[in-house]
């Protein structure tokens, strides 16, 4: 088995590995780095459960080779919370019941974070189009859209050192 040495940044930490050239990025994250928050839901890059950020761009990690991540910066769901403090998107998905089985959720949150970085104040349809590459079988998307709207509002608010705003009523 021929391997190749790679070095990349994952959630701000420099990581190294010797990998087969055919290893998918999602398997590097899950099987080698044991970060299992990034999921696999299909084999045709339709479902988006494996979505991560690569140098800030959303990418389906099942469709990218680990060796292509050499020298790049990867952000996964495990890098979203700041210790005990949830990212606004994580909090909003919880507040708005934006998840049920939770399997699509990490990919959905990563995709939403990419969307909000590009478009901090999206319309309902812009949110829906922004997550069109991420399939959810449980929620019917209604509460996912609401969650992304809640997070967008919160992230647009002026930077503050205060504790996160009180979550909106869940019902």
């Amino acid at each position: 088995m021929t391997t190749q040495h790679i070095e990349l940044t994952v959630n701000g930490q420099v990581r190294e590995a010797d990998v087969e050239p055919r290893l998918l990025l999602v398997h590097l994250l899950r099987d080698v780095f044991e970060m299992t928050g990034t999921h696999i839901g299909c084999d045709t890059s339709n479902c988006g459960a494996c979505t991560v950020l690569v140098d800030g761009e959303s990418a389906k990690s099942c469709t990218m080779l680990a060796v292509s991540a050499e020298g790049r910066s990867i952000k996964t769901i495990e890098g979203m919370a700041d210790g005990a403090t949830l990212h606004a998107l994580q909090q909003a998905f919880w507040d708005q019941h934006g998840l049920q089985c939770g399997f699509c959720t990490p990919g959905m949150i990563m995709q939403a974070s990419w969307l909000l970085a590009r478009n901090p104040d999206p319309t309902d349809m812009e949110i829906r189009e922004g997550i069109a590459g991420n399939l959810c079988r449980c929620t019917g998307y209604v509460n996912i859209v609401k969650a992304i709207e809640q997070a967008a509002t919160e992230l647009r608010a002026p930077a503050s050192t205060d504790a996160p705003a009180e979550p909106a009523a869940a019902s």
Binding site: G37, T38, I77, L86, F93, W94, D95, L99, G102, T105
Partner: peptide, 23 residues
């Protein structure tokens, strides 16, 4: 009551334990 779900904190952090996560 619309109690927020007790299972969500692990899911939103990517800390659910699905079958393929288990080694």
């Amino acid at each position: 009551y619309s109690v927020k779900r007790k299972e969500d904190p692990r899911f939103i952090r990517g800390q659910g334990e699905y079958i393929d996560d288990l080694v």
